[in-house]
Write a protein that binds this DNA or RNA. Sequence first.
DNA 1: CTCTTGCTGAACCATATGGTTCAGTGTACG
DNA 2: CGTACACTGAACCATATGGTTCAGCAAGAG
Lengths: 110, 110
Amino acid sequence: MVQQEVLDRTFAALADPTRRQILVRLGQGPATIGELAEPFDMSLTGMKKHVHVLENAGLVTTEKVGRSRRCRLGAERLEDAMSWIRFYQRLWERRLDGLDAYFTLKKEDD
Amino acid sequence: MVQQEVLDRTFAALADPTRRQILVRLGQGPATIGELAEPFDMSLTGMKKHVHVLENAGLVTTEKVGRSRRCRLGAERLEDAMSWIRFYQRLWERRLDGLDAYFTLKKEDD
DNA sequence: CTCTTGCTGAACCATATGGTTCAGTGTACG
DNA sequence: CGTACACTGAACCATATGGTTCAGCAAGAG
C-alpha cells in the first residue's frame, strides 16, 4: 500500500479546482508560471504556490529555464490515487447491503 | 464532466488518512459514531465531524437508529473521482514528451 | 420516573490554505 | 552598463480544517 502522506498530498492537491485546471492545461504541453497564471487572472505568486503544491504531490515537475520556470506534468502519482480508489472499490463492491453485511460477516466468524 | 464542487468535496474528503481509514472500516459493515471513534482514540464530536465531511462528499450515508447513528458506505462518488482521474490520465498518456509535445502541437496548428 | 449512555451543538483553539502586496534577484536585451 | 521582465520570498490577511471541552437532549434499562 502507498504511503499515507503521499496519498494525503495527492488527494489534497486534486481537491482544488484551480489546480485540476492547471493539470489539464499542462496536459496540452509545458507552460511557464506566467502562462499558467494569465487565464486565472491570478498573481504570479499565487500561481507559484499552486504549482508548488502540485510539485510536492509529484503531479508536476518544474525546471528553471532562463528567467522563466518551465512546468511540466509528472503524473506518476495519479497512479497511486487511482490504485487507492480501486482498492477501496473492491471492498465496496464486495460488501453486501447494510445490516445484512454486518450479520453475514458475524456469521462467517463462527 | 462532473460538477467541480462535487470533485472538490470528494478529493478533499479523501485527503485525510483518518477519513480513508473510516471508509475502509465501513467497507466491512456499518458502524456507529462511537464504534468508529474508538480505534482512533478520538472524541465522539471529532469523529462526527469526519463522518459529516464524508457524508457531504456523498461517500457515506447515515441514519439515526435509537440513540446511535448508523453509518454506512455510499460510495457512488468514488466513481466521480475515478472518472476524473481517468479523464486526466488519457490526456497524460496522449501527451508526447515535454518540449516535443509543445512543438508538435504548434506544428499541427499549421 | 430516574439514571445512564450515545450522540449533538456551541464555543474555542492552533494550524493550514489560498490569496494578496511589496521588495528583491537574476537574466535577457539594447 | 542599464533597463525591463519573470519569477521569488517574506509578510500579511481571511477563512477553513481538525481537533478539543462542556452542556444539553433523547432513548433505553431498571
